[in-house]
């Protein structure tokens, strides 16, 4: 780009000073010592001026400058000509045989009436919320695994008339605990046994099983409280 042609120091041939007595050289000299070259300012307004969107006062100032600056006038004329030149470039004839070539090429092409499953899957997986939704689903599955009720066990009713003796009550509680642990062990064994493949290490099920196993072993090792002969008697209906 020739900078000298864009920002000339001398006015163009169309210069028509407002004051007939004012010389263009004097104007240039004053501008050079005060605000500087106004062509930069004009360039920032040129597009709006050509589009007709510039405010009237500024448009008149631009017109005044263009009357004295041949380079800016040429630039604005080029901008104005682009308004007609550029839209004319939108459509270019590709040649007489182009349409036939396209029709021939598309004759045996399959038409996809809907989106491919692969496209749908890709779009589904690339949604921004997919990670959040996956986390929700994982959390819900985990909670269901933790709070899922265990299979019904034959736990004897603990609340029954035990009589007056505290020893008899303690004996009944120990007996009930032993029966409960035995039935729980049986039910867990029936759940675990059908699974042939071992669960992956650290899974929720494995942790639950090991926790239960530990508790059962602790139950077995714990000494049962001694039962008094009275406690072994069946409770009387009317103590």
């Amino acid at each position: 780009m020739d900078e000298a042609s864009m920002h000339p120091l001398s006015p163009g041939p169309k210069a028509t000073p407002l004051d007939p007595g004012a010389s263009p050289e004097l104007t240039q000299a004053i501008l050079a010592r005060t605000s500087g070259d106004p062509c930069h300012r004009l360039q920032s307004l040129a597009c709006d001026f050509v589009d007709g969107t510039l405010e009237a006062g500024q448009a008149s100032l631009v017109r005044l400058h263009l009357g004295h600056c041949g380079a800016c006038a040429t630039l604005v004329e080029a901008l104005a000509s682009l308004q007609t030149d550029l839209p004319a470039l939108a459509q270019v004839d590709p040649g007489p045989w182009f349409t036939q070539a396209v029709l021939r090429a598309t004759r045996h092409q399959p038409i996809r009436q809907g989106a491919d499953l692969r496209d749908l899957w890709w779009r589904l997986m690339h949604r921004p919320r997919i990670a959040l939704e996956a986390a929700y689903l994982g959390a819900a599955a985990g909670l269901m695994g933790v709070y899922l009720p265990l299979p019904a066990t034959q736990v004897p009713a603990l609340v029954q008339p035990l009589g007056d003796s505290a020893l008899r009550v303690a004996g009944q509680v120990a007996l009930a605990e032993r029966r409960t642990s035995a039935s729980l062990q049986r039910s867990l064994r029936s759940i675990v046994s059908p699974r042939s493949a071992p669960m992956p290490r650290g899974s929720l099920w494995q942790r639950l099983s090991s926790w239960t196993r530990t508790r059962l072993q602790a139950f077995r090792k714990a000494p049962a409280p001694p039962l008094s002969p009275e406690a072994q008697k069946p409770p009387s209906a009317n103590p």
């Binding site: 780009m1 020739d2 042609s5 864009m6 360039q43 040129a46 597009c47 709006d48 040429t74 630039l75 004329e77 080029a78 901008l79 000509s81 682009l82």
Partner: peptide
């Protein structure tokens, strides 16, 4: 960028003598 691009294009046209 729109205004800057138009201005740049016009400047290039002026430089090759296609001002008007």
């Amino acid at each position: 960028r729109s205004h800057r691009a138009r201005l740049e294009l016009a400047q290039k046209l002026v430089a090759v003598g296609m001002g008007a």
